[in-house]
């Protein structure tokens, strides 16, 4: 059974490489480009929490400056996979990599001597619940920037904050109340602030773990719009429960089931012509 899954062998990696093709699902919005290089290369990744296996034999190539969506039922391992990219799992007791590698731009992120804080700056992350810090809107964005660039001038910082807020389409709404507490913003605004906060440290990859799970449809729409804009400059990986959302915005889709990556491919292909029966069943809404 296991050999039918996209698994940890070199040959399956070869198959996956052929899947890295120009985005077709959003052909109308964006011109097809030539094959983009993989930004994240996952090769036979396995994860265990204590004796419990959470991920097994996951391999995929996440293309640069595209939106990749991870879908699958709850507890299928998609968030675990995501959190391996910036090593946010490190603090969890019992967590270990049971096999395989994650390469970011060719560099193994779990290799000895990797600067984890630098990794997390390169791979920004936005969480399911908006989690602005209990401080002003300005400080929410400036905090990490100040951390990374000690002695930065106020004017440079102002510029970075403004740019990040503009990128997150939040500037026009908050420009007059930057000193106000971030907790006074609405849920959707808070989530965009978290995106701005992540962008301010100039990441290469932006990961979002079900960013719209707690938002209303209008706020969700704005975030989706924003992600499409950002995908011109950033490699985006999004975990979502919302199949329609994955269909609307993603170029690549990975379908996870019970700790395995069942299928990974172009969004159109996964949704319209699944190679695996499990995928077809899931996208039809049969389970999950």
């Amino acid at each position: 059974m296991s050999d039918t899954f996209a698994s940890d062998s070199a040959e399956s990696l070869g198959i996956l490489e052929t899947l890295v093709r120009p985005a077709v699902s959003r052909a109308g919005e964006r011109e097809a480009e030539s094959t983009s290089a993989p930004m994240v290369t996952v090769n036979g990744l396995g994860v265990a929490y204590g004796s419990k296996t959470a991920l097994e034999g996951v391999s995929m190539l996440i293309p640069e400056r595209r939106i990749t969506a991870f879908i699958g039922p709850s507890g299928c391992g998609k968030s675990t996979a995501l959190r391996c990219f910036n090593r946010m799992n490190d603090g969890i007791s019992g967590f270990r990599i049971s096999g395989g590698t994650v390469l970011l731009d060719g560099q193994d992120v779990y290799a000895r001597g990797v600067n984890v804080t630098a990794l997390r700056r390169a791979v920004g992350m936005v969480f399911q619940q908006p989690n602005p810090f209990p401080m002003s809107i300005y400080d929410n964005i400036a905090l990490a920037v100040r951390e990374h660039e000690r002695g930065i001038s106020r004017s440079t910082l102002d510029g970075i904050v403004e740019q990040a807020l503009r990128q997150a389409n939040l500037w026009d709404e908050v420009r007059d109340c930057l000193t106000q507490s971030a907790l006074s913003l609405s849920g959707g605004q808070q989530q965009r602030l978290c995106i701005a906060r992540a962008l301010a440290v100039r990441p290469t990859v932006l990961m979002l773990d079900e960013p719209c799970a707690s938002l209303d449809p209008i706020s969700t729409g704005r975030i989706e719009e924003l992600l499409l804009e950002l995908s011109a400059d950033y490699t985006i990986v999004i975990v979502t429960h919302n199949l329609a959302q994955a269909q609307r915005i993603s170029d690549k889709v990975g379908f996870f089931l019970m700790g395995r990556l069942v299928e990974f491919g172009d969004a159109l292909q996964v949704f319209e012509a699944s190679a695996r029966p499990e995928t077809a069943e899931y996208v039809r809404g049969a389970f999950g």
């Binding site: 970011l104 731009d105 060719g106 560099q107 992120v109 001597g113 990797v114 600067n115 984890v116 804080t117 630098a118 990794l119 700056r121 390169a122 290469t204």
Partner: peptide, 9 residues
């Protein structure tokens, strides 16, 4: 990115 990851903490 590679250089960043290799930088001293």
């Amino acid at each position: 990115v590679q250089e960043k990851l290799r930088s001293k903490p």
